[in-house]
């Protein structure tokens, strides 16, 4: 019966996030054709679709975790027959689903478009995948930070830090040996360096979510 309540809580969050999910997906999809253009227009498009993903992550943690706590609707949720750990599982799962729908949709569109294109400009696919995983890791980090610290100040610091990390990432990673120059190739090159980068990002996601659930399970006070 409790598994079904966790499912209901996930469904509840997805219902409340529905416009956010749709908005991020539509904004990202609208920005993609622009980002494929040459020069400044292309850069603006790139910034727009990265903003769509980043803003989605920020809204999900601020609205879904922080506002639920501050507005005291958390009291209502925790009065339901669930344990605080089950609440955290539902919250993490709902946030992940809400993030991964636009994230996955945009990633699939980028990869699909590149593969379908003739001649194939596929060389940038590995870096785009790595960048998308970086943004996923940023989201997981923010989610963990809010669930663990419950602090608005830490949330703001986390948002600033992860946002500053994106331009730094875009400057550093494409210049790394084994990755540099590959984006201009017609075929995707999955070098050990790019695979390691993606692997580290995926590990950060797992570690952040695991830490969030671990801390929640050991916590004594939930309000």
């Amino acid at each position: 019966m409790n598994r079904s309540i966790v499912r209901q809580l996930i469904a509840k969050d997805l219902y409340l996030y529905r416009w956010l999910i749709a908005g991020a997906l539509l904004a990202g999809l609208a920005a993609l054709p622009i980002s494929g253009r040459e020069g400044a227009t292309g850069t603006i498009g790139l910034i727009l679709w990265m903003t769509a993903i980043t803003a989605l992550g920020i809204f999900l943690v601020m609205y879904g975790v922080m506002t639920e706590r501050q507005s005291k609707s958390l009291l209502f949720v925790l009065s339901l027959p669930i344990s605080p750990t089950q609440y955290a599982i539902a919250k993490v799962a709902a946030s992940l689903i809400a993030f991964l729908i636009p994230w996955g949709g945009l990633l699939a569109t980028i990869v699909g478009t590149a593969v379908a294109f003739e001649p194939p400009p596929e060389g940038h696919i590995p870096f785009v995948v790595a960048l998308m995983f970086f943004m996923f890791a940023n989201f997981a980090f923010l989610l963990m930070l809010l669930l663990v610290t419950r602090s608005e100040y830490w949330a703001i610091a986390g948002i600033l830090g992860t946002n500053l990390g994106i331009p730094a990432y875009m400057n550093i990673v494409p210049r790394l040996p084994g990755i540099a120059g590959n984006s201009d190739l017609p075929e995707a090159v999955w070098s050990p360096q790019i695979l390691t980068t993606i692997g580290v990002e995926a590990a950060v996601v797992v570690l952040c979510l695991g830490l969030a659930l671990y801390v929640q399970a050991r916590r004594k006070d939930h309000i």
Partner: peptide, 11 residues
């Protein structure tokens, strides 16, 4: 148990 408190909010 049904719980209602002064500072509880709905969505």
């Amino acid at each position: 148990v049904g719980f209602v408190s002064d500072d509880m909010r709905l969505f």
